[in-house]
Design a protein around this nucleic acid. Structure first.
Lengths: 335, 335
DNA sequence: GCCGAGACTGGAAGCGGTTGCGCACTTCCA
DNA sequence: TGGAAGTGCGCAACCGCTTCCAGTCTCGGC
């Protein structure tokens, strides 16, 4: 036994009367072990409660772990992706490890480096704000799947909600209800990253496009809010002052809930629609219309792509997940 | 350069014209390096974009990582703890890694083993359902802090919400509003683990205690629901049938929201109070009365205890976080 | 001028696994 | 019966970093 008290592969080998190399083969299910040896080794492993150390394996072999980079664990949509991913990993030999990017400073991809330092076998990243060339460099060494990126590259795979279609649906819905003065609320910092097309940016562009096509280009109005959880009073005022829109489309779920609250609190008849669904959007007391992206599906697809890459696929894959509009009480016909 | 393309400590040493041992000392900030050597080494590190591999460090030294075991990332309260923990880790040299326990099967502590296999320097676990002796064994090897455990042991630290005080406050609130027929809704599987005192169990006991003391022992009524996110129709029926209580206390936030929804949908005048606060509980359209536990504070305290342990403390510490009652519209005076 | 203390620095031995390769032993076919 | 092919297993060399320890160099005090 080593000093730490835990058994090593040598202890197992000694007890089973075989070489450490043989034990290694057994635990990896590698070729070239007789049933009798396997049996003895497995008994020894059991008896010593042996567990291979990930670090030692990583020195030469594989860590059998998938790194998931998750910004802002408090956002419901992101945890949905996480659920899908961990579920998809369930019956494989790979383990998920999550690195939360808590601070703003880490959003630049530092968290991805941390995962690379851990020599994970693949990375699922939800970071929309990392520069493409940084990702290129990373993907050259480790399989990487990006979620929600609209840039297509050969070096990493992507899984993206169809923001064009989602925006089309919700705009059609609002226009169909008779709305003409429709505003768009977007999170600052999400709409203007050079070289990166974030989902919120795409949605905003599509919003403008649809307004234009409906002959409402002059009525289009984009309000930006700071990067954070709350809609500042100034943005609310900007939107709800007289000459206000009759409907507001919001780029991110949490902000939509806030906006809806602000509208309700003022007793105004302004429709609000958002992106991403949660159980609370469906709560009768809230009933927020939104474009539902299937996060579980997205997480699962990301893992599938990653495992394919690890399995040897070299050409890039780009998957799209179709959103569905959940029309609820927060959007009403214009009076 | 190694085959993987990334620089190793030897590459840095060669470029800087020093020994690998010297580089190691520089990156660890260890004693015994001259300013001039440090300078050269740092330049070489910069030039090669060198990053030490966690696995190799783990072989002899420390991984500088803290493992956080997080059940059910979708529950808001848990992610709050995570936020507090990662924030507290912010300016240390330690990195958080999160292992989500997605499936029911993993709740028995398997996730803790996975963290141990990674040789993390410490573990924060939110798992209420792991047996104490399993934790003892783990804590003998690695510093462990448990959240929300009411069992006090010498081998691991705990951070716990004061469930006695929290229940006292909400019961006083309900009794003060004139409620007499108060029921308690608890998640099955949380209230009857041998040898483990879960928060929900403690709250239930306190509820019964307060009912008794108020001379309402006969009116006390505990309804159990299955272990999951939804309150099954049967439990709702059991609670809301004629002869129903005038107030319902719920052991977990998500269930309280559901229960409130069921009550509202039926147009009944039944007060509902829950545990844990979220921004949505405070949403005017929902306005759920609840006992607010400061998850950020709990996460931060857990990290502080862990760092103390890593720093050498040997005697156990048990911290309590005081909850505060957020009285809202979901609890009203009994008619 | 010598010596001991103190400040740096590097050599080499691990840490616990994996892997390439060779050896011994069987089996198969001519 | 001989040799080729195949199977099962172990030796030893890593993987990249840390740590122990010994060696060198400097410097001040006697």
């Amino acid at each position: 036994m080593a000093r730490s008290g835990a058994a090593t592969i040598v202890d197992v080998a000694r007890l089973a009367g075989v070489s450490p190399a043989a034990v290694s083969k057994v635990i990896r299910g590698a070729y070239g072990v007789s049933p009798s040896m396997r049996e003895r080794v497995e008994a020894a492993i059991e008896q010593l409660a042996y567990r291979p150390r990930v670090a030692a394996r990583a020195m030469r072999g594989s860590t059998f772990s998938i790194g998931i980079e998750l910004p802002h664990p408090g956002y419901h949509f992101f945890t949905t992706i996480l659920q899908g991913a961990t579920a998809a990993l369930g019956h494989t030999r790979y383990q998920p490890i999550v690195v939360p990017t808590a601070t703003e400073a880490e959003r630049d991809g530092r968290a991805l480096d941390l995962l690379a330092d851990r020599q994970v076998d693949g990375i699922v990243a939800v970071s929309p704000l990392v520069s493409p060339d940084r990702l290129e460099r990373l993907a050259a060494r480790i399989p990487v799947v990006l979620l929600g990126r609209h840039d297509r590259t050969a070096s990493y795979d992507t899984v993206t909600g169809d923001d064009v279609e989602g925006t089309r649906q919700v705009m059609k819905h609002l226009l169909g209800l008779g709305h003409r003065r429709i505003a768009y609320l977007v999170q600052e910092g999400q709409a203007a990253m050079p070289g990166i097309r974030t989902p919120q940016e795409t949605r905003m562009e599509q919003y403008l496009e649809h307004m234009h096509r409906a002959g409402l280009g002059a009525a289009a109005r984009v309000v930006r809010t700071v990067d954070g959880d709350v809609v500042p009073e100034s943005a609310v005022e900007a939107l709800l002052a007289p000459e206000r829109p009759t409907a507001i489309l919001v780029g991110r779920h949490e902000l939509a809930l806030e906006m809806l609250q602000a509208v309700t609190a003022r007793g105004l008849d302004v429709s609000v629609a958002g992106y991403d669904d949660t159980c609370l959007a469906g709560h009768p007391a809230i009933s927020l219309t939104c474009v539902d992206q299937d996060g579980v599906e997205m997480g699962a697809k990301a893992i599938r792509l990653l495992l394919e890459r690890i399995g040897g696929r070299t050409e890039a894959a780009h998957l799209t997940v179709e959103p569905t509009l959940k029309a609820r009480a927060s959007t009403r016909p214009v009076r």
